Simulated scan of single mutants.
Amino acid sequence: MAVVVGFIPTDVGFKALAAAREQAERRGGPLIVVNVVRDGVTSDPRHANDQQLEIARDQLRQAAVRVEMRQDHTDDDIADVLLRVVTEEKAELLVLGIRRQNDLARHLLGLTVQKLLLAAPCEVLVV
């Protein structure tokens, strides 16, 4: 069964990528890596550039399952894009990396993560 990971090019994003690889290999894959780029937003640190995507590919090169890297562009909600991919791929698991900035974990996680936790039609692993 498929594992989808919402990838952002940060330390926690790369940890989520490693966890997603492990889960995909355990479950028999494939692993779908999705970096969502919001159109019209030029300086978002969640957008992976070519070099960061290549680092992610290198991290996954020896994976024992098929890996698909996607960079989806949208002017929509990031959570909606990930939910669409999870549904299209019939994913068994969605993996997310969250930053551990306190303030009660940024008011209990943040809107995107909350939406994904509540609406995902599969298990969600938060790293």
Rank of each mutant, 00 (worst) to 15 (best):
A2G: 01
A2W: 00
A2I: 01
V3Q: 08
V4L: 11
V5Y: 08
P9N: 10
T10E: 03
T10F: 06
D11E: 15
F14H: 14
F14V: 03
A16F: 00
L17V: 05
L17R: 13
A18E: 15
A19V: 14
A19T: 12
R21A: 06
R21P: 03
Q23Y: 02
R27T: 07
G28W: 06
P30Y: 01
P30G: 06
L31A: 05
L31P: 15
I32G: 01
V34M: 05
V34G: 09
V37A: 02
D39C: 02
G40P: 11
G40Y: 01
V41F: 00
T42Y: 04
T42C: 05
T42M: 06
T42D: 06
S43E: 07
P45I: 01
R46C: 09
H47N: 02
A48F: 04
N49E: 11
D50V: 10
Q51D: 09
Q51K: 12
E54L: 14
I55M: 10
A56Y: 01
A56Q: 02
A56I: 03
Q59S: 15
Q62I: 01
A64S: 12
A64E: 14
V65C: 14
R66I: 08
R66E: 15
D72L: 15
D72I: 13
H73V: 08
T74N: 06
D75T: 15
D77R: 14
D77P: 00
I78Q: 08
D80L: 01
D80S: 07
L82T: 04
L83S: 06
V85K: 10
V85G: 06
T87I: 00
E88Y: 00
E88S: 07
E89C: 00
E89L: 04
L94N: 02
G97E: 08
Q101R: 15
D103V: 13
D103T: 14
D103L: 15
L104I: 08
A105Q: 09
H107W: 11
L108M: 14
G110I: 08
L111M: 13
L111P: 12
T112Q: 12
V113N: 08
K115P: 03
L116I: 11
A119I: 04
P121V: 02
E123H: 07
V124H: 13
V124D: 12
L125N: 09
V126R: 09
V126D: 05
V126Y: 06
V126H: 07
V127F: 03
V127S: 05
V127K: 05
